[in-house]
Amino acid sequence: MSITVKDLTHIYSPGQPQEQVALDQISFRIEDGTFAGLIGHTGSGKSTLVQHLNGLLKPTSGTILLGDTDITKAGTASRQARLKTGLVFQYPEYQLFEETVAKDVAFGPNNLGLSPEETDARVREALQLVGLDYEELKNVSPFELSGGQKRRVAIAGVIAMKPEILILDEPTAGLNPKAHRDILDMVRGIHESTGNITLMVSHNMNDIARMCDQVLVMDHGRLLMDGSPEEVFRRGEELKEVGLALPDSMEIARQIIEGGLALEGTFLTMEETADAIAAALQAK
């Protein structure tokens, strides 16, 4: 299911002294099956934007199409479409509350009024997608798991709703390097097995460069850039002006080029940068 946002504006406290334009005439399109990234400084409007995509917030003006359905309109079709967007908040493990892992993951599907069999099937499938063993963990309290595992259970709770669009807000915040990589591999695995849109909000430029097909850059409520990682990270100076940065692999490549060694490539990963350096040195 594609996302089409047109002229989306959101004003907090309109008409009040503290009136604030959080989103200012945003338009973009994300095609079905895309792995998209959303970056921007704190307060740039990222959270406000993603909360519109599952109907938690209503726009002041503008439209949001999920597939062909305008979710800003009232009505059943709109409600159904909003349920197709699964939103994983920052530190989702703080939202775990049930006595067992299985019950926690089942909470959403139960609320959809599914049969117990269907719910159970979804719980199994969701836990498998996040890389956890259903038999081993179904009766364990989620609070006894490690930080990385808790986060997986929380994500499974969203996956079990079978969203056609999965939005993750900073899924790797506060994780150690290995857990960080593991969660990203898991997200990539889910993306590949469902073939849906994944939208990842992140402050980590390395992850965005490595994972995404399309990158949206927000600044002060406006959409500053929309393009492939190559296109977006080519504009390093502008990114730095709005509080962002280049991925390490590109920042190091930039400094090497500045130091006088001509490199060619896109440098989206450290391996690409290493290949470019090796090639440049061999050519000498």
Partner: peptide, 20 residues
Amino acid sequence: LSLDVPAPIYLARILGERGV
């Protein structure tokens, strides 16, 4: 130990693997 090294140290290592 599920840890890592800083980016330039990692790059220096994989450059070594590429004969630099």
